[in-house]
């Protein structure tokens, strides 16, 4: 494997230089700080799985530990978020006239979008915001972005509990299709973790990206049909075909619509983009595997310089 310490050829050296290298080789010493091979990296990461989950849970509980209401905020925050969006898009702008079950539709969209959005935001700062940790301890650095994505998943599970209450309050019947939530969330989590790892590497090299991300993410949100129905727009057939394809294969839209399909009975399969499960799996695989390899490629550079 290549040695990655950017070592230029040796300059004129003291006499015992060769001896030292030979001594090290004779006793099987390895070069400090080299990047492990991909299978080895995966193994190391697996060994740290308990750290990944403990770190995620710790971050989550530390979040509200100073608040008087404590962990109640885990559920309150998403509910308040949903209320604000309802007020603006449901009441003031009147989007609800076009969509049946608008409140469940909106709240599902907001929660699922928030999951992706906060995972990516946290991923961007995963390395650059935790330099102290990276510079003090050895662990596969991918543990950080994955841990942050896991924290957001736990956060989402709290939101889902709130969502279930909202759904039942608005008369959405409980059905077997709710079980689809599990594979959908699993795929979305893989996608989020993958994108987080890509952003973590970029953010580690150029921390300025963290300043740009909110704008990119907000644009992405408005394009993803969080508050409006993509289906209504694409069926109106005055849009160019390419735009329709782009809107329908947008991963955020795919995951949001999957979740709506799973939870809301008035959201029919005809409203789903074509080949929705294939798209969801494809995005998860592409981001998950690609993001992991992309992140691993720079493993030895994190926290340096």
């Amino acid at each position: 494997m290549s040695q990655v310490l950017h070592t230029p050829p040796q300059s004129p050296a003291p006499a015992d230089e060769d001896d030292l290298a030979a001594l090290a080789a004779r006793h099987g010493l390895t070069v400090s700080g080299a990047r492990p091979s991909l299978p080895e990296y995966v193994r190391q990461l697996w060994e740290r799985r308990h750290f990944i989950t403990a770190f995620a849970t710790a971050k989550l509980t530390a979040q509200y530990s100073q608040a008087k209401l404590g962990q109640v905020w885990q559920v309150m925050t998403p509910l308040l978020n949903a209320a604000v969006y309802y007020f603006i898009f449901g009441v003031l702008l009147g989007t609800k006239k076009h969509v049946p079950d608008y409140i469940p539709f909106l709240v599902t969209g907001v929660f699922i979008w928030t999951f992706t959005q906060s995972s990516i935001m946290a991923g961007t700062r995963a390395i650059s915001g935790n330099l102290g940790l990276v510079r003090a301890l050895h662990f596969p650095r991918a543990a950080l972005p994955i841990s942050f994505a896991l924290q957001q998943l736990q956060q989402l599970l709290f939101s889902m509990a709130a969502l279930i209450v909202i759904l039942i309050c608005f008369g959405v019947p409980i059905s077997v299709s709710w079980l689809l939530v599990i594979p959908a969330l699993f795929l979305q989590f893989t996608f989020n973790a993958g994108v987080s790892m890509v952003m973590a590497r970029m953010g580690a090299k150029t921390p300025d990206i963290a300043q740009l991300m909110p704008f990119i993410l907000r644009t992405w949100m408005y394009l993803s049909g969080v508050m409006w129905s993509i289906d209504k727009l694409t069926k109106a057939d005055d849009l160019p075909h390419a735009v329709v394809i782009a809107l329908e294969t947008n991963p955020a839209a795919v995951y949001i619509d999957l979740m709506r399909y799973a939870l809301i009975d008035s959201f029919h399969s005809s409203q789903l983009p074509p080949h929705v499960w294939a798209a969801a799996t494809g995005w998860a695989l592409l981001a998950g595997v690609g993001g992991f390899i992309y992140f691993w490629k720079a493993e030895e550079t994190y926290g340096r310089g």
């Binding site: 040796q10 090290a24 400090s32 700080g33 940790l133 003090a136 050895h138 926290g303 340096r304």
Partner: peptide, 23 residues
């Protein structure tokens, strides 16, 4: 192994650890 070296090499047996868990 937490800082890159400009020239030369550092060889170690196993993984040296800094006694720093604070972070």
């Amino acid at each position: 192994g937490l800082l890159p070296v400009e020239n030369g090499r550092i060889y170690t047996h196993g993984q040296p650890s800094l006694l720093g868990v604070n972070a």
